[in-house]
C-alpha cells in the first residue's frame, strides 16, 4: 500500500439539491450533493458550494476545505472536502 494524493479536481457525474436532510444537516438546507469523478478516475460523493441553478452534469469542480458538521455548540467540529465550480477562463471578457 502506498499513499496517493489526488489533485482533487473532477467532473460532476450526477447531482441533486437537498431540501429535506437528516438532523445533522438540517440547518444547511438547501445544499447540493453530487457524485464527482476525480480526474484520476475514482468517484466520490461530496457537496458543491454553489447556487443550485449553476450545477450541471459534466461541470468541472475543484476542492475546498470546509466545515462539514458540528456536534452541538461545544462538541467536535468536523472538517473535510467540499467542491466549488471551476471558473472557466473567459478569453473574450474583461480580466
Amino acid at each position: 500500500m502506498e499513499e496517493y494524493k489526488f489533485k482533487g479536481t473532477g467532473t460532476v457525474v450526477t447531482f441533486t439539491t437537498i431540501y429535506t436532510a437528516t438532523e445533522d444537516f438540517d440547518r444547511q438546507t438547501p445544499y447540493n450533493l453530487a457524485i464527482i469523478r476525480l480526474d484520476e478516475g475514482p468517484r466520490l460523493t461530496g457537496q458543491i458550494v454553489s447556487s443550485a441553478d449553476k450545477v450541471k452534469i459534466g461541470m468541472r469542480v475543484s476542492p475546498v476545505f470546509r466545515i462539514l458538521g458540528k456536534e452541538g455548540d461545544r462538541g467536535i467540529i468536523y472538517y473535510g472536502t467540499k467542491f466549488v465550480p471551476v471558473e472557466e477562463p473567459n478569453v473574450d471578457g474583461p480580466k
Binding site: 450526477t14 441533486t16 460523493t45 462539514l68 468536523y78
Partner: peptide, 22 residues
C-alpha cells in the same frame, strides 16, 4: 463516504433519477 458529506436516501435515488433523465 456518503452520509458524512450530507447524503440522504432520497438524495442518492435523486442522483440516479437525474442521470437516468439525462
Amino acid at each position: 463516504w456518503e452520509c458524512f458529506f450530507g447524503a440522504t436516501f432520497p438524495a442518492l435515488y435523486a442522483m440516479m433519477a437525474r442521470l437516468h433523465m439525462r
